[in-house]
Write a protein that binds this DNA or RNA. Sequence first.
DNA 1: AACACCAAGTCTACATTTTAGAACTTTATT
DNA 2: AATAAAGTTCTAAAATGTAGACTTGGTGTT
Lengths: 113, 113
Amino acid sequence: MKGNNLGEFEELALLTILVLGDDAYGVTIKQAIIKQGERQISRGALHTALSRLEDKGFLTSRQGEASEARGGRPKRYYEVTNKGKEALHEAKATRDRLWNQIPEVRLELQYAW
Amino acid sequence: MKGNNLGEFEELALLTILVLGDDAYGVTIKQAIIKQGERQISRGALHTALSRLEDKGFLTSRQGEASEARGGRPKRYYEVTNKGKEALHEAKATRDRLWNQIPEVRLELQYAW
DNA sequence: AACACCAAGTCTACATTTTAGAACTTTATT
DNA sequence: AATAAAGTTCTAAAATGTAGACTTGGTGTT
């Protein structure tokens, strides 16, 4: 890819991180995505996407603390970079522009009879 | 994939077909995508996506006539199915919902100084 | 100190999507 | 018949998406 296009899952992940703000790490991101009701995802799936996004400069991460509850491995918090935000805006703009060019009629569902 | 998620290129293609309406076939779709100014794509790339979308029931195709100008192989016209439209609406809804949950501040670009 | 146990991140490997470019097909023109 | 034009189809590789097993780092219990 040219390097600036986001895959659909990547985009979903970035948006979710922006929604979560300060509290975006693996588990919360996963929960949020699932809660959006859209799909089931695994830890692994998410983390590979996140680390690819980081490689490409769409987000950065920093080590956090362990969970209070019962200990556990330290969290890794994610933050969307400027580049990431720009990519999101661009993706949105392109699609919005396309949606605006579609006449209403053409969106109606057809039923056989 | 589960079977109902659209890849980002797939989505772009479906939207473009809706924009083009009656005149959507390989070449016009390709031109339209490029003209949206977003990217360069090859014939092959587009056609594989289209046929995959057809396999998945997001669009149908029918054979058309050859070009008037100078002949040539008959065109294949594409049309988005109900299922395709629904998938587009869903994808849009999910993202719009996410965008609405992002506070303005969090979208601002950061500059070092 | 040793051990169980929990929360989370990392690794591995395979499936699906994206991509480009070469090859092919059909028709028109000369 | 040969060549050109307008398209589509094939092939193969790179990028993304995905699940599940594995590891690590911490806390609590004895």
